[in-house]
Design a protein around this nucleic acid. Structure first.
Lengths: 210, 210
DNA sequence: TAAATTACGTGATTTCAATCACAAAATAAT
DNA sequence: ATTATTTTGTGATTGAAATCACGTAATTTA
């Protein structure tokens, strides 16, 4: 745990803070598709992502869902932070897109560290900002882009997060993330293939052009 | 300034912090439609909203815009906070929807107060959370709702923020905020009027049902 | 290996919103 | 008061996406 922590956080956190994290943090391995946070959960702390990729999804009453953004190593879940500190509920669901490793930090320390460590304050503020910006990008996509553009952005973004040029996914899964129907996705994927940007296989999409 | 500050923030901030705010804060009155923050601005501090209503808008390269959310008294602009602390640019525009009063807090104090005042930490974290939740609501609207539902939500939300049951606005203005065309808005407004939810006048919309 | 399930392909139709085109009413400017 | 501008109303058309309805291919399961 210490190694991984050093690897991605030694330039982010002060030595003393790293020590504290090692002491109180709980290491956890997530298997693919494991649900880390679910709608309405009360958070007992927040996760630091050491390795892997986590999908953050919003769901409404009717069960419709839409992808908000992905987290990658070095990230934390800003929604959890608020929820943890205020004892409120979390309005999102977090699912591991692939096997991932996290350190779970207990909420009792979160406020204490804000006082003690400048690096922690920066990290928290930065995290919020990154997340606000991601949300704005999502809003941009929904408000300004056509479905084919959104789809291509989805594919390239996800490939980047997953650090792969091929995605193992079905058309239906993409449709869920983008809140549209499988038929629409299938057609647009075929169109992207005809444009030479991707190559389609069963359960797999190769991205040829970024 | 002290009075207004006490009125909305005496239960939020400690006495010592209120004193500091009075010392370093710069009071400013905004006239209707005044631009408080523009795209790409570097923030030298953050605004506390004492009175009035401020619209936060996102704009893309092509000049298309969409409303993100409204701020009301007691609120602050979370986007500015990050931008101020990190010296980064602000991706939004803030416009006074009506005459408003703010206190501008210089960025030098923001981090210092995080260490000194528990109430400041809570306020900042809460602000971020409220904003994240507002953004999620905006995403919900865009992803899950039809235009007529979005429009009705827009009208009732705005009426609430403005503390009026009538809105002084044109169909075109609404169209800009919702990133659609005037024709679409006119038709849907007429439809809402036929349903008895609103009453239309020139430059004015009465909301009959909340 | 046969049957069931899952994933993908594609035509046809419908719906919601965007766009075009124009007219009428209200208000502001000269 | 006449003209110009702004705001609103509405028919007709187009376009993107959603939905319906199948068919086929690849995999799994029995």
């Amino acid at each position: 745990m210490r190694e991984k922590l050093e690897k991605y956080f030694s330039y982010v956190f002060e030595k003393e803070l790293l020590d504290e994290i090692v002491q109180v943090g709980v290491y956890k391995k997530l298997r693919e598709n494991e649900v880390l946070v679910d709608l309405g959960d009360k958070m007992k702390g927040i996760p630091l992502l050491l390795e892997g990729a986590i999908k953050i999804v919003r769901e409404d009453k009717k069960g419709d869902e839409i992808l908000l953004y992905f987290l990658e190593r070095g990230d934390t879940c800003a929604s959890s932070f608020a929820s943890a500190i205020s004892n409120g509920k979390c309005g999102i669901r977090a699912i591991a897109e692939k096997e991932s490793e996290i350190i779970f930090l207990p909420k009792e320390k979160l406020d204490e560290w804000l006082v003690k460590y400048k690096s922690w304050r920066s990290f928290v503020i930065d995290s919020y900002n990154i997340r606000l910006n991601e949300m704005m990008e999502t809003i941009d996509s929904l408000a300004f882009m056509r479905m084919d553009e959104r789809l291509y952005k989805y594919l390239t973004d996800k490939a980047q997060i997953m650090r792969e040029t091929s995605l193992n996914t079905t058309h239906q899964d993409i449709a869920y993330d983008m809140h549209t129907s499988r038929v629409v996705i299938s057609r647009l994927l075929k169109q992207l293939e005809n444009e030479g940007k991707i190559k389609l296989h069963r359960n797999k999409i190769e991205i040829l052009e970024f």
